[in-house]
């Protein structure tokens, strides 16, 4: 039942026992990580972020994605139904050595961060032709 997880935003830190002292809530974005022949594609759902409010950092082999979302304000309205919380996003991944760090690409559209992590030349599968001994 993976569905249950997808329906509710996960709050970062709660499951890892990490306590935060920031006033804002931090959520763990849902991701798709697909490995293709030449690259690894990472899609992260971060509704509310744009290209200015998302940060991707790579330190040693740790890739961190962060997104800032400003809370919604509706003056003189009362919140009648509250099904999701609004806050920042954060998630960390450990990359293997086989990523070509210099050519990582990132873009954001419709609240989805798309990272393209090209595989290093050495890590790509190579087909070695076998020649028969004549």
């Amino acid at each position: 039942m993976t569905d249950t997880r997808e329906m509710k935003k996960r709050e970062e830190g709660l499951e890892k026992g990490v306590e935060r002292t920031r006033a804002k809530r931090v959520y763990t974005p849902a991701v798709d990580i697909i490995e293709k022949k030449d690259y690894i594609m990472l899609l992260a759902d971060m509704p509310g972020v744009d290209e200015k409010s998302v940060k991707v950092t790579l330190e040693k082999d740790v890739l961190t994605i962060r997104g800032n979302v400003e809370p919604e304000v509706h003056d003189s309205h009362r919140l009648a139904i509250h099904e999701y919380g609004i806050g920042d996003y954060e998630r960390t991944f450990t990359l293997s050595n086989e990523i070509d760090r210099e050519h990582i690409k990132a873009s954001v559209s419709d609240g989805v961060l798309r990272l393209t992590l090209p595989k290093a030349e050495t890590a790509r599968t190579r087909h070695i032709p076998i020649t028969g001994t004549a």
């Binding site: 997808e6 329906m7 849902a30 798709d32 697909i34 490995e35 022949k37 899609l43």
Partner: peptide
């Protein structure tokens, strides 16, 4: 030829 490491997005 592709491999899905995570597939969380609905």
């Amino acid at each position: 030829g592709e491999f899905r490491h995570r597939h969380e997005i609905r």
